Simulated scan of single mutants.
Amino acid sequence: MKPLRTLLLLALAAAIPLAAAACGGDDDDEPTPAATAAGTAPATAAASPTPTPKPSGSITVYSGRGEALVKPLFEQFTKDTGITVNVKYGDSAQLATLLAEEGSASPADIFFPQDAGALGAIAKAGLFEKLPEATLAKVPATYKAKDGTWVGVSGRARVIVYNTSLNPAELPTSVKQLTDPKWKGQVGWAPTNGSFQSFVTALRKLEGDAAAEKWLRDMIANDVKVYKDNRAIVSAVAAGEVKLGLVNHYYLWSFIKDQGEGFAARNHYTAAGDPGTLINVAGVGLLKTSKNKPAAQAFIDYLLSEAAQEYFVKQTYEYPLVTGMAADPRLPALDSLKPPAIDLSDLDDLQGTLAMLRKVGALQ
């Protein structure tokens, strides 16, 4: 039986209207039929097949990406294609749970979470269509599902953000070192964040459940500070409330954009193969429930277009995943990072991770 809290969350999520103005997301309406092409094919159409109608109508996107980050991109897609995008924003894990609950009755066409764990959970539930090879070919194998059911759109590296008063030489080379008494009360994390939960899932896969649980308990015993999200952690580190924080790399750069190079925090990448250098993806999958698959596929291909990939580079400071696209030059090149050897499709045990976080008291 599902916990009462989960049932209440699902009931609340179901009550929120689907509208582009909805709010939420942890990054901090049914589709209308496609319009009929004007006119009719000439009698000689047998020799010249009728062109495929241009995708039109509307789609519903369940987005774990925050509204502030992706709404402008969705609006541009509508301007460019005429396809209306109705959005349900929310926490990636909760939206994945909702999709599983809705099953074949879901109104969603697209699932666009902020992490591979949520994508893997929906793929494991058999709710995604297989994507066309032409779409999958745009992205390296590391950043898409082996069975072709989802594809990464943008990448983010896990980092330790640190206050610039620290000497970089004294920073930990592994997240395992954060349990040292040296860092007691000086580290921030956000257990409700989807990317943090995927990191914990990766830790479980790499080190085993017993070791992951021990690390979580040791962090709590070392007085880790809890924040609501990544932005709050970066702000707290710069203000000196804590010295270190577990976040995604790109949050720092939005602060630097707003406050200048004097902003008192920077990113630190842990050693090669360390769980703390996990590279995760925000990705997208086409749901079998979609009533407007041509428009939904057009949306996916748009996210992998040069214009959209440049948006992620310039506006959200994430890594573009389409082969040949370059990241912001201030970031270390994606292929220079040495993340742990893990198949992102294996980050699908969200429920197991949530159960562990509740067990140790990191989540209520």
Results as ranks from 00 to 15, higher is better:
Ala272Val: 09
Gly245Cys: 13
Phe112Gln: 02
Phe111Thr: 04
Pro332Leu: 08
Ala157Pro: 07
Ala157Phe: 00
Ala19Arg: 14
Ala100Ser: 11
Thr323Gln: 15
Thr32Asp: 13
Trp150Thr: 02
Thr179Val: 15
Tyr302Lys: 06
Lys214Ala: 14
Ser106Ile: 10
Asp301His: 10
Ala232Ser: 13
Ser63Ala: 14
Thr277Pro: 01
Lys146Cys: 05
Pro17Gly: 11
Ser48Thr: 12
Ala212Pro: 02
Ala100Ile: 14
Thr277Lys: 00
Ala202Phe: 05
Ile342Lys: 07
Val85Phe: 07
Asp80His: 04
Ala211Phe: 03
Pro72Asp: 09
Gly324Glu: 10
Ala326Met: 11
Gly276Glu: 08
Asp180Lys: 09
Ser345Ala: 15
Ala282Glu: 09
Asp301Cys: 09
Val360Glu: 04
Pro31Phe: 14
Lys71Asp: 11
Gly39Glu: 05
Lys205Phe: 02
Pro17Met: 10
Arg156Pro: 00
Ala125Pro: 00
Asn222Pro: 13
Thr84Leu: 08
Leu95Asp: 05
Ala46Lys: 12
Glu213Pro: 01
Leu286Gly: 07
Ser92Asn: 06
Leu347Asp: 02
Ala93Leu: 07
Asp28Leu: 07
Trp253Glu: 04
Ala296Trp: 06
Arg358Glu: 15
Tyr162Met: 05
Val175Tyr: 00
Asp109Val: 09
Ser174Val: 01
Leu354Gln: 14
Asn248Ala: 14
Ile110Pro: 02
Pro42Val: 06
Ala236Arg: 00
Val224Thr: 12
Asp328Pro: 00
Leu304His: 01
Thr6Ala: 13
Glu133Ile: 08
Pro49Cys: 13
Thr142Ser: 14
Val313Trp: 07
Lys257Trp: 07
Pro191His: 09
Asp229Val: 05
Leu216Asn: 01
Pro17Ala: 11
Ala19Ser: 14
Thr201Lys: 04
Glu170Lys: 13
Ser235Arg: 04
Leu7Asp: 08
Ile220Asn: 03
Pro31Gly: 13
Ile122Trp: 02
Ala93Gln: 05
Thr40Pro: 00
Asp91Met: 02
Ala118Gly: 07
Thr179His: 00
Pro31Trp: 13
Tyr251Leu: 12
Val61Tyr: 02
Ser290Cys: 09
Gln309Gly: 12
Leu127Phe: 04
Ser198Cys: 12
Leu216Thr: 00
Tyr311Phe: 15
Leu363Asn: 06
Ala362Gln: 08
Ala125Tyr: 04
Ser56Gln: 08
Ala93Cys: 04
Ala96Val: 06
Ala333Ile: 06
Thr192Gly: 06
Glu133Thr: 13
Thr353Pro: 11
Pro72Leu: 10
Ile122Met: 10
Leu99Tyr: 10
Val153Ile: 15
